[in-house]
Structures are given as C-alpha cells and as structure tokens.
Amino acid sequence: MPSDPETGSQAAGPRHVAIIMDGNGRWAQARGRPRLFGHHAGARRVREVVAACPDLGIKYLTIFAFSTENWKRTQAEVAGLMNLFRRYITKEARALAERGVRVRFIGDRVRLDKKLIALMDQLEKLTETNDLINLTIALNYGGRDEVARATRRLAQDVADGTLLPQDVDEETLPRYLDTRVLPDPDLVIRTSGEARISNFLLWQSAYSEYEFIDTLWPDFTAEELARLCASYGGRERRFGAVIA
C-alpha cells in the first residue's frame, strides 16, 4: 500500500503495478526474426507476469499494449498486432476467467475494428465478477488523448449545467478518466533500456515510483518482477512532504 501522503513512510509492496512493455521488436531482430515474432513472444510473457501477481501482493496490473502513436508503424506491423490482440483475447479468455482475473481495456476504441471491439467487450463481460487480479490493458491509449477526451466530457457536463465551473478541482478530472475505477499506480516499470514514459498514465502516475530497466520485454520474468517489487518496498514515499 502507498505511504501516508501527509507524512511519508517506507512503502510496502506495490498494490498497483503498471508496465510499459518495450523491446519486442529489438528482441526479435537480434534473433534474425521479424518484429512480429517478438510481439508474439511478448504476449506469452504477459501470461507469466499475470500469474505471478497474487503471490507478490499485486492486486492491479496495467500493461501498455498499443499506443495512439503506434499507428505510425508500418501497415504490416499494425495489422499483425491487431491480429495478435484478437488471437490473445480468444485464446486467453477462459484461462483468465478461471484464474480470477478481471480484465478491463482503456483507450479510445473508435479506431479499432468492430471484431476486436466485440472481443474486448466479451472479455470484460466474462470476467466482470472476478476480483483476484485486476488486469487493465491499454489499447490505442495515450495519456494526452485520455485527458483530452476526459476534458471534453467534463466540459459537456458544465455546458449541460450538471457541473459548475467553480466545483472543478484536481479531484474532478479523475472521475472522467478511463481509469476512474482504478487506484493510481504505485510502481511503473519501463523495459528495454529506454528512460521515458511515452505518454502513459500521465495524470495517474504523478507520484508513482519508476523503474527503468534494460531487460527487453520478452526476457522479463516473474523473478525480475519480484525483485523490482522488493526494491519498491525499501523506498520512502513522501508525496511532496519533507521528512524530518
């Protein structure tokens, strides 16, 4: 659980871990294989990480699967990724449901194809009563896009008279975000050696702890996740406070 925002204290293990899964393409290219080979390997790694969460005390896991900027990749890679998402949902749905995983998707669905959207809806419905792990998949997601969409909804409520401008504060906007039913992440992990947040959970991660690691996502293991969680547990979270 996070420390007291007023006083700060040593953190216990993270309750909510968010992961920027990076390095699939480079992992594949290093093996002389096409980039999609790496994406398939990365999808298999998700299964292992989800399974490890209960023993590590992780109640919420949020993974960055496809960003609003990823449409700039080649048409072949984008098409391959969309096919991979459809296959993953179809193949993993029953296992996720049986393991007590509740699945949610965040991001703008408008640009996704109807078959994929239908599968996403079905998986959310199938797992909606589960509560062992909350797995959130960010698909066609961007932090700035999320805030823009939330602001439009908020502005519409103001225009409709159901929300007064003077009542808008920093507690208001989160109620319009895709993640409104989730706690903010305690720990954000970025794999592959890149040290940037890539437009991921911009509002929600204001006081998250970060780990930037060199491991490429297909090589990421449950053991490494455990190590990072243990490291997080040794940190002092201050939330802006000064500790005497």
Results as ranks from 00 to 15, higher is better:
141 Y>W: 04
135 L>E: 05
149 R>Q: 06
166 Q>V: 11
166 Q>T: 13
173 L>N: 01
122 Q>I: 06
153 R>T: 05
114 K>T: 15
137 I>F: 04
144 R>N: 07
107 G>S: 06
206 A>N: 02
125 K>S: 12
169 D>M: 01
116 L>V: 11
121 D>L: 14
98 E>V: 15
128 E>C: 14
112 L>Y: 03
175 R>S: 08
164 L>I: 13
115 K>W: 13
143 G>C: 04
175 R>G: 07
152 R>A: 10
118 A>V: 09
156 Q>W: 04
156 Q>T: 11
144 R>G: 08
108 D>E: 12
114 K>G: 12
194 E>R: 01
201 L>S: 02
167 D>N: 13
114 K>W: 14
128 E>G: 09
175 R>E: 06
104 R>A: 07
172 T>D: 11
123 L>D: 14
160 D>P: 02
115 K>V: 15
116 L>Q: 10
110 V>D: 12
120 M>N: 10
180 R>P: 13
206 A>L: 01
146 E>K: 00
133 I>E: 06
145 D>I: 09
121 D>R: 13
165 P>C: 07
195 A>M: 12
106 I>N: 01
99 R>Y: 06
148 A>R: 15
156 Q>E: 04
137 I>Q: 01
145 D>F: 06
140 N>D: 11
100 G>F: 09
172 T>A: 05
163 L>V: 00
167 D>I: 14
159 A>F: 09
127 T>D: 14
199 N>V: 08
164 L>A: 10
118 A>K: 06
127 T>W: 14
184 D>N: 15
143 G>A: 00
144 R>I: 07
125 K>D: 12
139 L>N: 13
133 I>P: 10
182 L>Y: 12
115 K>A: 13
194 E>C: 04
126 L>K: 04
111 R>A: 14
140 N>P: 15
104 R>D: 03
